[in-house]
């Protein structure tokens, strides 16, 4: 798949949409790129990301229970189904597309592959971002802290052990 925001200097699309709806302009940082876009006041961040072609953020329950739509906003994880698109004006958002690249995977992504921490893959983007937010704040977390950090991300395939092992592997490789 062509990923425009991965190309140096590539511009993100500005959404035009229906002029009759109540729209507002938002300016924010998306995966380290400045973005200016028109959003409907009642659109959710997760839907807005999908409209922008960023489909790595998954929509599960839509109620903040499953964590599949987890993104990082100003350094903290959030369920993007519980955030309105206009709320991110002036903020910094990291989605799974901002984690590593196809050529150079993020160490967490490498570890997830090596440890077999992925089955159906639906929870994986959210799991990776929760793990990233943890490691950004605490480079040497204990096993319990790792487990707690992904407690807002439901996985119905792996039973969490391999996911926690993968995160632990990155911690060990750094220390």
């Amino acid at each position: 798949m062509d990923v425009p925001w991965k190309k140096p200097g590539a511009k993100l699309p500005v959404l035009e949409g229906d002029k009759n709806m109540s729209k507002q302009t938002i300016n924010f940082m998306l995966n380290s790129q400045k973005v200016s876009a028109q959003v409907e006041s009642d659109s959710r961040l997760v839907d807005f990301l999908h409209e922008m072609g960023l489909t790595g953020t998954k929509l599960g329950c839509g109620e903040g229970d499953c964590g599949a739509c987890t993104v990082i906003i100003d350094g903290q994880t959030a369920n993007s189904c519980l955030v309105l698109a206009p709320q991110i004006d002036g903020k910094e958002v990291t989605t799974i597309e901002g984690l590593g690249s196809y050529e150079q995977l993020h160490p967490l992504q490498e570890a997830f592959i090596e440890e077999g921490a992925v089955q159906c893959g639906f929870c994986t983007p959210g799991m990776l971002l929760s793990a990233k937010a943890l490691l950004d704040e605490n480079s040497n977390p204990k096993r319990e802290e790792i487990i707690r950090s992904i407690s807002g991300n439901l996985c119905r395939c792996t039973g969490y052990t391999k996911i926690a092992n993968a995160i632990e592997k990155v911690v060990r490789s750094k220390s």
């Binding site: 903040g64 964590g67 994880t77 950090s149 807002g152 991300n153």
Partner: peptide
């Protein structure tokens, strides 16, 4: 309360 994501918000 809830989960890390919920507590952050």
């Amino acid at each position: 309360v809830g989960s890390p994501q919920i507590r952050n918000k």
